[in-house]
Design a protein around this nucleic acid. Structure first.
Lengths: 102, 102
DNA sequence: ATATTTTTGACTAATTTTGTCAAAAATACT
DNA sequence: AGTATTTTTGACAAAATTAGTCAAAAATAT
């Protein structure tokens, strides 16, 4: 699965749009968009929504990449990273199951 | 598995120490420690290390709880949370495997 | 070689996180 | 019950991180 940055760069290049154009729509500086596409900056949640609307792709698709990137960033370079993800996953499963009951 | 806050509250109560005492050692205000124990604040990574030293438990143990909490916090209330964790886990596995080769 | 697009990096603004403080609430001890 | 101790609360301040601007340099396309 592609990172969010790779995904939106691909979408943008498919449409042959310059950073300038997309950045203008998103109302951000093109420098930021450039950095986001290359993974040097994390976009805000809000931007992800705007990007999905702009490129006409399901928001969930981009949001999944966005969240995965964010999580990965948190545990990267951590010795216990993988284990921590597993623990978090188990806990989240329990949490989700509880809330489904209601 | 207990959250980091629950873990350190348990450790502290076992030794029958007041917040004041532990907070003084950690060089933070007792209000913060109170909030950390109840999960209202996230401790810094640094504090986790200090806590492990103070309570004489393996740092990895607390660090695992700390990281799991942190990750959980990132994806809680996100519709795609669980899926995002799975994606992140897969990606991290690949990343770890690559680095092991060297 | 000129025009266009992308990247870079220094700088500022905004937001989030981390912490302090003092008082209120809760708990424990005579 | 009354007092002392501990814990919690919430308003506030400081510090750190993140998001953004801008202009120039570098890369790419025409």
């Amino acid at each position: 699965m592609l990172s969010l940055g790779e995904t939106i760069r691909k979408l943008r290049e498919e449409k042959e749009l310059p950073l300038r154009t997309v950045a203008a729509y998103l109302d951000i500086d093109q420098a930021i968009l450039s950095k986001i596409e290359r993974g040097l900056r994390k976009p805000s949640r809000d931007l992800v929504t705007k990007l999905a609307a702009y490129f006409n792709v399901p928001e969930k698709e981009l949001m999944l990449a966005f969240l995965a990137d964010k999580v990965l960033y948190e545990v990267a370079d951590e010795e216990m990273g993988l284990e921590a993800l597993k623990v978090a996953e188990e806990k989240l499963k329990i949490y989700v199951a509880k809330n489904e009951k209601q």
